[in-house]
Simulated scan of single mutants.
Amino acid sequence: MGGVGGERREPAQPLSIQQRLAEAMAELEAVQTGVAQAEEELRSAAVTVRSANRAVEVTVGPQGELTGLRFLDGKYRTMAAAELAASVLECAGQARTRMSRRVMETFRPFTEPSARVPELTGVDVDWSRVFGPQVLEEPGGAPGRVGDRRLRDEIVEDAEDEANHG
């Protein structure tokens, strides 16, 4: 039975193990090629960020390494050392986070399940473990909120410890 107008349809033939293996091998080869292309693309990648006060510009490479540092418009001459250091660190952190997100986006297709071979579920990558938890925070969100909360928790815990043991 089944089919339109009482026609009888043959059920689709399941793929043989050899056919499934061939598809899986082809998919794995495509993934290997894609990963090699992604790695090649990222080898020459760079991200440049300017500080909020526009006094510093930092460039990082694909592994988050500092590859460039520029002091803009002589603004650094009027800045306190701590302020200049904070600007450099701010820029470097933002640039590393942006590069991390670029790496994540480049490799995202390899973390998703295969449409052709359901058994290939994609690589499971814990990006926060690789790059740190800030990489998963929304861009433009409140910077440092996680760290600030942790610091406040430690201060509270220290006060509680002293009260309980003092």
Rank of each mutant, 00 (worst) to 15 (best):
2 G>F: 08
3 G>W: 04
5 G>N: 15
6 G>N: 10
8 R>P: 02
8 R>H: 09
8 R>C: 04
9 R>W: 13
10 E>H: 08
13 Q>G: 08
14 P>K: 09
15 L>I: 04
15 L>S: 11
16 S>I: 01
18 Q>F: 05
19 Q>H: 02
23 E>A: 09
24 A>G: 08
27 E>G: 05
27 E>R: 11
28 L>P: 02
30 A>V: 03
31 V>M: 09
35 V>A: 14
35 V>G: 08
35 V>C: 11
36 A>G: 10
36 A>F: 03
37 Q>V: 09
39 E>V: 12
39 E>T: 14
41 E>Q: 14
44 S>D: 13
45 A>P: 06
45 A>G: 04
48 T>F: 09
48 T>Y: 08
49 V>M: 10
49 V>K: 03
51 S>K: 07
52 A>R: 15
54 R>W: 03
55 A>T: 10
56 V>N: 10
58 V>H: 06
60 V>Y: 06
61 G>R: 10
63 Q>L: 14
65 E>L: 12
65 E>M: 06
67 T>W: 02
67 T>I: 11
68 G>A: 13
70 R>K: 15
73 D>E: 15
73 D>M: 12
73 D>N: 15
74 G>L: 03
77 R>Y: 02
80 A>P: 02
80 A>R: 13
81 A>E: 13
81 A>F: 06
82 A>K: 14
82 A>L: 15
84 L>S: 07
85 A>P: 03
85 A>C: 11
87 S>T: 05
87 S>V: 01
88 V>G: 08
89 L>R: 12
89 L>G: 06
90 E>Q: 12
91 C>D: 10
91 C>T: 09
92 A>L: 14
94 Q>N: 10
94 Q>D: 13
95 A>K: 03
95 A>S: 04
96 R>I: 01
96 R>C: 04
97 T>I: 12
99 M>Y: 01
102 R>H: 07
102 R>E: 07
103 V>P: 01
104 M>Y: 04
104 M>W: 00
105 E>M: 08
105 E>W: 01
105 E>V: 00
109 P>H: 05
111 T>S: 05
111 T>L: 00
113 P>D: 04
114 S>T: 03
117 V>K: 04
117 V>C: 07
117 V>M: 06
118 P>K: 03
119 E>M: 04
120 L>R: 01
121 T>L: 08
123 V>T: 03
124 D>L: 02
124 D>N: 05
125 V>P: 01
128 S>R: 07
129 R>W: 08
131 F>Q: 00
132 G>F: 00
133 P>W: 00
134 Q>A: 15
135 V>K: 00
136 L>H: 01
137 E>I: 02
140 G>Q: 08
141 G>L: 04
142 A>R: 14
143 P>D: 06
144 G>L: 09
144 G>P: 01
144 G>V: 05
146 V>I: 11
150 R>M: 15
150 R>C: 08
151 L>A: 15
151 L>Q: 15
153 D>G: 13
153 D>R: 11
154 E>I: 07
154 E>N: 09
154 E>W: 11
154 E>A: 12
156 V>F: 07
157 E>D: 10
159 A>E: 14
160 E>T: 10
161 D>F: 13
162 E>R: 10
162 E>V: 13
